[in-house]
Amino acid sequence: MKILIPFLYEFQSKFDGYDVQVLKRGTSYFNVTIERKADKAIISLRDVLQYTSPCNLDSYLKQWGAKFTKSIFPHGHFDSIESMRNCVNFPEKEAFFNTLKQAPVDDEQYEKAKKFYASQMMPNMSFWLEYYNSLDVEPLVEALSNSFAKFHDLFSIDPNMELSLPTVAFKAMFRLFDPSLPYCFTFDKQRSHLREQHRRSILGGLSSVYHRHIDLSGDYTGPINSRIAPNGDLFSHVVFLDFNRY
């Protein structure tokens, strides 16, 4: 979405009657909406990862019973769409080197992809891109439908109506709560020993470990946010406090 948003704002400025709203939360674009003002038609761009525990596409599709054919694309090999169109032959294996993971492409996967490219008689690599793109989106629709149907079956909740998993969980929790019971329950003084017994059995809870990139080397090579504090001064030291211990 970070790539799409500038174009959406351009779209809003060039076409009257459209309104783009971006809702950012933490380190992600939580919800991006495009509204056609004339009929209040709203399109909402969301991330599937807001409705599941952290995972990659492969495991998400497997988890929700969608068929996924993993394939490869040389993202770093082409510098323009023209070079992609001019590439008639399937690129060499080196072109598929993953620079982020610093890993070469799997031999079997490469050979399989190369054979498929030849068997389909694709005129150039832009057709491969179309195939590669469709491999992602079609199974994702199937997985998402299966996942949301399960939410509906088990909790009578439509996740399309919510923006993230915590809200879905919150609503599911209240739906599972017996409405005939009082909303809150605590032990009175006479039964305080039960409360203490309960608290004694608590061993720990959820915890989060955060990462913060701070560059104290002073050689100006790191990203700006790793070197300069919000007040404009250079970082001199880092203190990480665990508030559970205080």
């Binding site: 979405m1 970070k2 790539i3 500038p6 950012k24 380190t27 992600s28 674009y29 939580f30 909406t33 209040k40 038609a41 709203i42 399109i43 909402s44 761009l45 969301r46 991330d47 599937v48 990862l49 807001q50 990659n56 596409l57 998400y60 992602d136 994702l140 998402l144 399309n160 109506m161 990203p223 946010n225």
Partner: peptide, 28 residues
């Protein structure tokens, strides 16, 4: 009105990395 909102989902599409935007180029 929530029923009339048309949701479009992407996978791992929302993450914000710090970036500069200039012309058609996206620094990532």
């Amino acid at each position: 009105r929530k029923f009339t909102t048309f949701p479009l989902y992407g996978f791992n599409s929302s993450k914000v990395y710090f970036f500069k935007y200039s012309n058609s180029l996206n620094m990532f």
